[in-house]
Design a protein around this nucleic acid. Structure first.
Lengths: 223, 223
DNA sequence: TCAAGAGGATTGTCAGACATTCTTGCAATT
DNA sequence: AATTGCAAGAATGTCTGACAATCCTCTTGA
C-alpha cells in the first residue's frame, strides 16, 4: 500500500481561527495573568460576532487556558506555585516516558529533524534571540512527542506545556538558563540517537527538573 | 482561623447544566459511537437555544467527548483499538503514580471512605448490579485520585477515563471480570492501607493492564 | 467612616435570519 | 449497468439584535 495521502482540504471556520489566535495571544503573554477579557471588546478586535467569540472561549476554557466564571466573564488564570508544580510533575511523568519511547522507535529521518531543531535552538541561544529560543524548543519537543508512538500522550503534553508557557519563556530568559538548557537537550538528543532508553529517560528527567527549578526562580523573582 | 466555609452559591448556568447532561448521556452510552448529533434536535430535547447548545458542544469537543467536524456537525467518536490502547497506556502511567502517591499521604478518614467504596463495589458485584458496579468503581478511583496530592493528575485522569467509559462498562460485564476486578482493587486497597508504595504501584499496574486486556476482549467480541 | 442604594457595564440567553455546505435521490450520459 | 451531474432539502456557520440577570462602582446618607 502506497503512502496514504490526505488530500482533504479542511475548511477553516471562524472559531477555529479565533481559538488559534487567542491561544497564541495567551501563551505568548499578550494578556497578563489575571487580566479580564471583555467579550464586546474582543469581538471588535477580532472582527467577529459575540456568539462566535463565546464558542471560542468555551474551547479555551476547556483547555484551561482561560477561566470562565459565570457572570464575571473570562480571565487569564493566575497560577499559584502549587499549580505550576503540579503541572510540572505530570509533565515530567509524561515527557520522560515519551523520550524513552521515542529513543526506541524514532526513524533516521526524524532523528535528523531532531538534530536540526537542536541546531536551531543552539543558534537561537547563541544569538540571544528570545523568540526563536521558544519556538525552536517547541519544535524539538514536538518532534519527540510526535515520535513517541502515543498520540494521547502527545496531546496531553501539549496542553500542559501551553498552560505554563509564560513561566517557560520567563525562566528561559534567566541568566544562563538557555545555555544549561541547551546542554541538557544535547544529552537528550545523544541518548535518543544512541537508542539508549535508560539514558534518554534519565536525561529527560534531569531536564524537566531543572526547568522546574528555573521556573520557580523566575516566579519568585517576578513576584 | 476557623475552618473556611465556602458559602458561595455558584450559579448554575444553562451551558454548565447542558454540558453535564450531555456528558453523562455520552459516557453512559445513551448515544452510540458514530452517532450524529443534530443541533436542532438536541435543542428541542434539552429545551435550550442553539447558541447555548453550541457553546456546550464546544466544551465537549475540547474534552474529546464528541467530534466536531466543520459543516458536518457533532458526532460521537468511534475509537479504534489503537486509540483505546494509547489512552490506556497514559492512564496506566497516571494511575499507577496516583496510587503510589496516595499510599504515602492518605489520611485515616479518607482511607475509611476508600474502604467503604470498596465494600460498595463488592456488594454491587455480588448483586450483579451493572450500574452500581460502574458508579462504585468511579467512587473508589475518585477517592484515590483526590488524595494523590496533584489536582492536575486527577483532572487529566478523569478526562481519559471518561473517553473510554463505554469500553469499561462493556468489559465489566464480561464473565468473571467484575470478580477479578474486585480482587485487584482489594490488593490496591490493602497496599494503600499499609502505606506500601511499591506494592501499591505494582497492584495498580496489574489492575490497569488487566482492565485493558478485558477491554480488548470486549471490543473484539462486540465487533 | 461606613453602609445602603442607584446606575452603568457586562454577561447569560434567546429568537430569528441567511449564506454556505453537505447529503441524497433522480435523471442523463457513456 | 455504472457513473456522472444536478437539484432539492437538510444541517451547519455566522450574524444581528434584543432583554433579563448579575456584577461593579460610585454616590449618598446616616
Amino acid at each position: 500500500m502506497p503512502q496514504e495521502l490526505d488530500l482533504r482540504v479542511l475548511p477553516r471556520t471562524v472559531q477555529e481561527e479565533t481559538v488559534e489566535k487567542l491561544r497564541l495571544a495567551i501563551v505568548s503573554g499578550h494578556f497578563q495573568p489575571g487580566a479580564r477579557l471583555v467579550e464586546s471588546q474582543l469581538c471588535v478586535e477580532l472582527g467577529i460576532s459575540r456568539p462566535s467569540l463565546r464558542e471560542a472561549l468555551r474551547s479555551l476554557a476547556a483547555e484551561r487556558l482561560i477561566n470562565l466564571v459565570p457572570n464575571r466573564g473570562p480571565s487569564i488564570p493566575e497560577l499559584t506555585w502549587e499549580e505550576v508544580t503540579a503541572i510540572y510533575e505530570v509533565r515530567e511523568m509524561l515527557e520522560v516516558d515519551a523520550v524513552g519511547r521515542c529513543s526506541q522507535r524514532i526513524t533516521k529521518d526524524e532523528l535528523e529533524k531532531l538534530e536540526n531543531a537542536l541546531s536551531a535552538f543552539e543558534t537561537a541561544t547563541l544569538n540571544n534571540d528570545s523568540v526563536a529560543r521558544i519556538t525552536t524548543t517547541e519544535d524539538f519537543y514536538s518532534i519527540i512527542l510526535a515520535n513517541c508512538g502515543n498520540p494521547i500522550l502527545e496531546e496531553i503534553h501539549r496542553g500542559l506545556v501551553a498552560r505554563i508557557s509564560l513561566f517557560r519563556s520567563r525562566s528561559m530568559s534567566l541568566e544562563g538558563r538557555a545555555i544549561s538548557s541547551l546542554a541538557e537537550m544535547k544529552d537528550i538528543y545523544k541518548a535518543i540517537a544512541a537508542h539508549d532508553e535508560i539514558a534518554a529517560r534519565s536525561a529527560s528527567r534531569k531536564h524537566v527538573l531543572k526547568a522546574m527549578a528555573a521556573a520557580k526562580k523566575a516566579m519568585e523573582s517576578a513576584s
